[in-house]
Design a protein around this nucleic acid. Structure first.
Lengths: 324, 324
DNA sequence: ACAATGAATTGAAACGTTTCAATGGCAATA
DNA sequence: TATTGCCATTGAAACGTTTCAATTCATTGT
């Protein structure tokens, strides 16, 4: 491996001069600098990031920690984060883990954005510190070195409920996802709150549980219809679009019509939703903006004087299409 | 920052004993080991990955280097790669860059999978070496430390052409993406080859160029129809599904019908395609398997004795739906 | 009782950088 | 000519580990 030492030897200067030259210090004369640069090029020198990081106690990398790459939801958000991170002279590295979270524990990053239900609150608290501030996107945890940037899930659910009430629905069901998901649980909470607010009774029977995938939505709905025959709500709100799509397919499969027999509202407004048949009424989440906001918040933690150009807070919007 | 030194001091042993204990060496007695582990826990010791990596000249990280996170295409592939990488005791880190590619140059990874048209062949050649083998997914470059794992694009295009010929089409157009894309160009090449093989004339006019996004497909098609009025091919093959969907929307927008007036075939079989209206006929790319194959190939380069459990080669399949 | 064996522990070098502090040389000033 | 001050360069320590080689110490065999 070609090291700075080799470059220095070749250029006939000391190690430190070589280092200064490579890093463009003003101390070094141009002629020496050129000599070093030429030598580096000749022997194909590449700086060793690991050594540099060890010395500087800093990687210039921001980590995005996910529980998995699955689902169409995250790419927009990554783009948003990436934009801001690059703009600040850092790199973004995306990482999915369910167990040891090594890259976080072992300080591979200068800051982290967390959207990973596999990480326990206590784990995050033990890991976040001055040199490694964290933004959490999936829990309400807050401390000196941990700040949440959350979606207005409850508000979104309320929008969906009100939309349906306005259309005259009297009995509204809900399909929720896995319990581990913060977004899932807070969407459910918002739904229940708004239902109560309007003095509507919500029987346990009308609360379906699936796991956010389309398949699970399909299966849950199919089973629900099998069990409760003709005694169905006239509308169902789903905790995400994929389950909504699964539910719709299940309903259609039994000969019922959406939205005529059962209206369905989703959440997220993923790309497919507008093309689905029928086009999905849903709560739009501005994923890219969410990512940007998170990244800005992170840089603000890393540098209290940091100036965000645009720090929009995350808001949510009802897309009224055909399905509900 | 709590270091191993602190742990050693606290446990009343030497630095090296502490290190051996943490790493579970059999040399150390259990009682000492426990003492060290307890001390580590008490003061909240976390190993410093950077220091470790520097010493070991190895990160246990595999990098996936993309040009961007955009588009629905990549998540499946990431999953495939992730599975294999984890299974081998490594971590996967995903990274998008268009310029300096720092994480690759500075040896942050032990191996790399490349799908990034921003990286020049010469750059890759200069960067790949014994300690950093590369799998390329987007070019035919091959050397001792670089191996390609490619999609059978030409074969896929041929399938599409033959499918259309069998349906009686005599004049088939093609919508291609940006020139930088290997997949795009080889799909085009396969199309031309198969067309020639059947002695069909392909006028330049019937070759549309867009940039792989749905919008660009829409725009290109719209303009094409505006310009060439009634003189249209009866079928068009598109280099990916997104453009196909854009093209279909443009066609439908002028009152024409798909597939009755113009048949459309896409490429990739992204998730949306089956739900599109009309459901998209397309060439299915097994993205997850592609990822797995690439990862296996990489580990084989990193260790010639590496045994893959399943090393399927990548194949492609025509999904005959409604659009073409 | 003493050397030989072996196990447990430790000292110290190394990984490739950055950067502080020290050095050397040279021109300008006195 | 001797002193000052500046500038370019260099030596050496440090970052937190791992691991080879050396050391200590108890145990065994003779």
């Amino acid at each position: 491996m070609v090291t700075l030492k080799d470059v220095a030897k070749r250029a006939g200067v000391s190690l430190s001069t070589a280092s200064y030259s490579i890093n463009g210090s003003t101390l070094i004369t141009d002629v020496t600098k050129q000599k070093v640069l030429a030598a580096a090029k000749e022997i194909g020198y590449r700086p060793n990031g690991l050594a540099k990081n060890l010395k500087e106690q800093k990687t210039n990398i921001i980590g995005l920690f996910l529980s998995g790459f699955t689902g169409p939801f995250f790419t927009d958000m990554m783009e948003g984060i990436q934009d801001v991170v690059i703009q600040n002279g850092y790199e973004l590295m995306v990482y999915a883990s369910d167990d040891k979270h090594r890259l976080l524990v072992e300080r591979y990053v200068d800051g982290a954005i967390i959207l990973n239900y596999h990480m326990k609150d206590s784990f995050l608290k033990s890991v976040a510190d001055e040199k490694l501030p964290c933004i959490v996107l999936d829990r309400e945890l807050e401390s000196t070195f941990i700040k949440p940037v959350l979606l207005p899930n409850e508000q979104g659910s309320a929008m969906a409920v009100n939309h349906l009430l306005k259309k005259g629905h009297k009995r509204i069901g809900y399909m929720t996802g896995s319990v581990e998901s913060y977004d899932g649980e807070s969407r459910l909470k918002g739904f229940k709150k708004e239902i109560q607010k309007h003095d509507i009774r919500l029987s346990d029977q009308d609360l379906l549980r699936a796991d956010f995938t389309e398949q699970s939505g399909f299966a849950a709905m199919r089973q629900y219809i099998d069990e409760h025959g003709q005694d169905l709500p006239s509308a169902i709100v789903c905790a995400n679009d994929e389950m909504a799509m699964g539910a719709i397919r299940a309903i259609q499969g039994t000969g019922l019509k959406v939205p005529e027999d059962i209206a369905i509202i989703g959440f997220d407004d993923i790309y497919v939703s507008q093309y689905f048949n029928p086009p999905l009424t849903t709560i739009k989440v501005p994923r890219k903006e969410w990512g940007k906001t998170a990244a800005h918040a992170l840089f603000k933690m890393m540098d209290p004087d940091y100036e965000c150009d645009i720090d929009e807070s995350v808001s949510v919007e009802l897309m009224s299409r055909t399905s509900g």
